[in-house]
Design a protein around this nucleic acid. Structure first.
Length: 310
DNA sequence: TGCCCCCTGCAG
DNA sequence: CTGCAGGGGGCA
């Protein structure tokens, strides 16, 4: 399910919870959900947690490694490259994956809020990571599309699933010209579909591509070849604004998404078009329309979003 | 570039 | 019952 803001939300939550903890055991309830050798991870401690596009990485090192957590990514990269002892747990949550951390307190007198999920594990718990302090991280995934794999830390950046990703939209270096250049590799595609291509820009999925098009005042069906520079700039700003708002409101919960503590995200309360079929546009009152584009549900305001002919 | 597929559950 | 769901890989 998660797009960039949801994975980022999980990352920020887990960073506060599991960095420094030792993983004592990995229980695999669904064999297809775990790729690689869990023995490479058991007994190691969590060094750091990072996100690239919609992927989440958890670096683990030997419990006695004594590596400073403050080192820069490049320092870590060079030190960890090619060393079999340094392993990354690489996650992709796909449509319904969840990563929920429980320290045990919640079960014996915590203060659950109404948006929390129920007691872990549940029927969709595929993997359980146990930590030496008695806490657990649950990987739940109703549809079993998601996975976690244990990969060599030095190989992770050249992992086939990571190497072709487009630029990170919230990092320095992402410009409207780069967005334009990458989109123009798909001249005949509808702009919304092209924006979801992970080699064009990292992390934008169905919710945020809909919102970005609305924010840009662009009909999602407009072909990339028909965009002018003004529209590329507006789309660029729309992508960044939508993603930042997504993070600000703790992500989007349509059905499954929860953060590392089991809380839902509230971005959809602020969405202009996604999931608002037949509801009035928040700007002009026109009924939001739902269509299919590239096989995905696509929402637009026929009045606010322009540029589509025929 | 557009389909089908992976899988499960829910709404209509 | 059918269709649809925050993704993406593989196939023509």
């Amino acid at each position: 399910m998660p797009e960039l803001p949801e994975v980022e939300t999980i990352k920020l939550g887990l960073q506060k919870k599991i960095v420094g903890l030792k993983i004592t055991k990995i229980q695999i309830n669904s064999a297809k959900s775990f790729i690689g050798n869990p023995n490479l991870v058991e007994g190691k401690k969590v060094l750091n947690i990072w996100r690239k596009a919609k992927y989440l990485g958890v670096d683990v090192v030997p419990a006695n490694a004594g590596i400073q957590l403050k080192k820069s990514r490049s320092e870590l990269d060079s030190r960890l490259r090619g060393n079999d002892n340094f392993v990354t747990l690489l996650f992709h949550l796909k449509m319904t994956g969840q990563l929920i951390y429980e320290d045990g307190q919640r079960l014996v007198g915590g203060h659950p809020t109404p948006d929390m999920v129920g007691k872990m594990p549940n029927a969709h718990t595929r993997i359980i990571f146990s930590f030496s302090d008695g806490s657990h991280l649950y990987f739940n995934d109703q549809r079993k599309f998601g996975w976690v794999k244990a990969v060599d830390r030095g190989q992770v950046t050249v992992d086939s699933s990571l190497k072709n990703l487009g630029p990170e939209p919230l990092e320095r270096g992402f410009t409207w010209q780069i967005l334009k250049q990458n989109l123009l590799r798909h001249k005949s595609m509808p702009v919304k579909v092209a924006t979801m291509d992970q080699t064009v820009v990292s992390g934008v999925g169905n919710i945020y591509s809909n919102e970005a098009c609305f924010s840009a005042g662009l009909d999602p069906r407009v072909r990339v070849r028909d965009l002018n520079d003004e529209q590329f700039k507006k789309l660029y700003k729309g992508i960044i604004k939508s993603l930042k708002d997504g993070i600000k409101y703790g992500g989007s919960t349509r059905a499954h998404f929860v953060d590392a503590e089991g809380h839902k995200g509230y971005f959809l309360d602020y969405a202009y078009v996604y999931g608002r079929d037949k509801h009035p546009c928040k700007i002009c009152g026109t009924k939001i329309k739902k269509i299919q584009l590239g096989g995905r549900g696509t929402y637009l305001c026929p009045n606010c979003q322009k540029g589509y002919n025929s």
